[in-house]
Design a protein around this nucleic acid. Structure first.
Lengths: 316, 316
DNA sequence: TTGTATGCGTTATCAG
DNA sequence: CTGATAACGCATACAA
């Protein structure tokens, strides 16, 4: 293993000069600097992040907390985690995936990324001794990253109208959480702007719950209705049950999902959906947390990323 | 932060005694030991894994390599990763998720978990300077963990026959990889045992490829046929297209999937499937790698875990 | 601007 | 069986 000392010897300087070239290059003369840089390149030197971590009282580990009531097999989270991982790896950080509440405080970490937290979990955050960033809207002032949920549903609603569906029904998730309220707000505002009376159903986030809903209410639905769903998982069930009822998708009924990860492509026809930039959100989460750590906890703010409409076969 | 020294002071012993209580408790007298243990409990002492890592020349990081041609949004991998993470966290290890080939050698790690590797990737393993375990069968002598693929398909085939389907067709994945050969072998052997002539199709692992296959060949399929699929992803497409063709599932046609993670439940009716113990496989991967690291690279062998048949609505 | 000494928290080595 | 000392690789504080 090549160490600072090796580089120092090779460059005929002290260890400190090498260290400075890495951390405070402006404090060393250009001549020495290039000398050291050459030596580093020649020896293929890479700082030992463990030693750095020890002396800086860092762990180079970030905990990724997933609250339990979440379905960790959701493809959604996979993308998020890979986004997070990508940024972390760049900075020689590693990830500790935590689903067990007791593991949250145990062990060492420089900070937390928290996802799937419900309002009822918020009080626990006060106990956290390290910086954290939430994944998902909240109105308590915690730093967070999310999609612009309101805008996403607005895009969907307007697109449905532009495809000449006459009625728009929103099928949301029965959770009293900010992200759901935002999505509903996007629907309600856009509906009213077009003189439509909003109609909302709320169900659990499962394809079979969606199927049941459509099955029970199918008689009430008229042709030229578009269903805007709060998730692809719901949309996939809606689409399937509409077909089972003998309805034509997309000719008579449109279906629009939300998320745009994996499931939209398993559907048939593939779903028109609002795609969240989930990978990018993961990267951003990591970037923000790393910065917060570097700045010893300074607030990073609230960031909403732009969703995009993906046009596919479930709308005409 | 509570350190060894703090505990040592509290217990009126030297740091080394405390260290020994942790690492070699048999080397210290019971009296001193309990004294130290009390002090540790009282102060809520936890070893600083970074300092341990430094002195042991460890990183406490394991790289999880996913080769690129893999769809990282597959729910499948999510479960695997959480299984891995669970074991690692117990030992204060963290994870570095790597999809970028250039990142494999970069940075520090104590070992590798490799998934999605194709035969063509194997030569790269020789360059690895740290221990590694593969996820997925191979016949090159590399340590691995996998499901007993052959047995899984055997279970499926025998179950289909027991449900009185008269013809069994296997729809595999068009990959020349050991896991696929094993699954086909499970089908072929069981078929022949029952005097049936094997019939195999091979397609890419996508629901739409499966739909296309069924659509093109539907006329050839007779009633009382059961399709055994090499993945739930394929099964979901088979089931859907059978229904689209007006066939009755499960009455006239049966469908059995493979994997048993998430997708089997998105289907309608839910899939009868061969469930792989994926979470457990993840845990085992981590356990084996950690052990291999501790034993400075000694072989851990090849482990096949038992799959289980899940009976659901896609078979009668 | 550069170098020396010291310490981060732990463990291995060797002496007592 | 127990303790003092050095070492892991690096960075901060201070001296030159």
């Amino acid at each position: 293993m090549v160490t600072l000392s090796d580089v120092a010897k090779a460059a005929n300087v002290s260890k400190m000069t090498v260290s400075r070239v890495i951390n405070h290059p402006e404090q060393v003369t250009p001549e020495l600097r290039s000398l050291v840089e050459n030596a580093m390149a020649q020896l293929d030197y890479h700082p030992n992040s463990i030693a750095q971590a020890l002396v800086n009282n860092r762990t180079n580990v970030v905990k990724f907390i997933t609250f339990e009531d979440i379905d960790t097999t959701e493809p959604y989270y996979m993308n998020l985690i890979f986004g997070v991982a990508r940024e972390l790896t760049k900075k020689q950080y590693a990830l500790q995936l935590v689903t067990d509440r007791t593991q949250i405080e145990e062990g060492r970490t420089d900070g937390y990324l928290i996802t799937g937290a419900r309002s009822s979990d918020y009080e626990m955050f006060d106990d956290l001794k390290k910086p954290f960033i939430l994944f998902g809207e909240n109105h308590r002032g915690f730093d967070f990253v999310d999609t612009d949920n309101q805008k996403g549903v607005k895009l969907a609603t307007e697109y449905a109208l532009s495809r000449l569906y006459k009625r728009i029904i929103f099928i949301g998730i029965d959770l009293k959480e900010p992200f759901e309220y935002s999505r509903e707000a996007g629907y309600i505002n856009t509906s009213q702007k077009h003189q439509l009376i909003p109609q909302i159903y709320r169900i659990s986030n499962h394809s079979h719950a969606a199927q049941k809903l459509i099955e029970e209410h199918f008689a009430e639905f008229k042709k030229d209705t578009c269903f805007i769903c709060a998730s692809d998982r719901i949309a996939i069930g809606v689409e399937r049950q509409l077909q089972a009822e003998g309805a034509r998708v997309p000719e008579d009924f449109g279906v629009i999902g939300f998320d745009g990860v994996f499931l939209d492509q398993v559907a048939n026809p593939k779903l028109t959906t609002i795609r969240q930039p989930i990978f990018k959100m993961g990267e951003l989460l990591a970037t923000m947390l790393l910065q917060k750590i570097a700045q010893s906890g300074s607030p990073q703010g609230e960031v909403l990323l732009e969703p995009t409409l993906i046009r596919r076969g479930s709308t005409r």
